[in-house]
Amino acid sequence: MRFEDLKKLNEARATRKAVVTVTDLATGEAQVLVESGSVGAPLGEAVAKALRSGKAGAVDVEGQALFLNVYLPPPRIVVIGAVHISQALARLAPVAGYDLTIIDPRTAFATEERFEGVELVADWPEDVLKQHPLDAYTALAAVTHDPKIDDFPLSQALKSGCFYVGALGSRKTHAKRVERLMEMGHSEEEITRIAAPIGLDIGAATPAEIALSTLAQIVQAFRRRDLVTGR
């Protein structure tokens, strides 16, 4: 691979663009295709398939042995609530390769000091999500257990097909939340997509352990998502 191509690849990845590289295994010649929707046949079909599945692999195109590598934007975690759990999650997520944003309108919680180097927005989710909508490559974890802050983003996450939707709170808290979401027009079936209480059941007791169990649950949801429907 040429150095110019590597720089192009890294730049595209840094800006959350999907990239496919095509390497001729006989010569080592490589091509870097950035969010390319217009690759001619017969290579185009293989490129489209790689982008859909996210899987790299060797392909034979008209007698040429090619290797297609795929670099999809890393999944993003949006955390509602700049709480103790979020502090731990903000440190764990980058290690696992997940981008992370924290939203909390309570400026006492959302401080630079508590979240050094983390993308933190001290504003209401209603306003932030208008600018940066949720999508299928986003996981939403609501951890304030304050309905005024959590309910709107949870509802948006269900509507936007986030690959993961989780909410902190006891079963009792969640039962009330379910009632409120139904009043907001969500069906029971939709609401069952919400992981609550949040996190895989590993007996997590501390904020850091709850963050770890939540991240594990997010990874599980991402790796097992249904690629066919795009979720």
Partner: peptide, 11 residues
């Protein structure tokens, strides 16, 4: 350098 950079061989 942040954690993901350290773990990203292409970078």
């Amino acid at each position: 350098m942040t954690a993901p950079d350290m773990l990203d061989p292409l970078k």
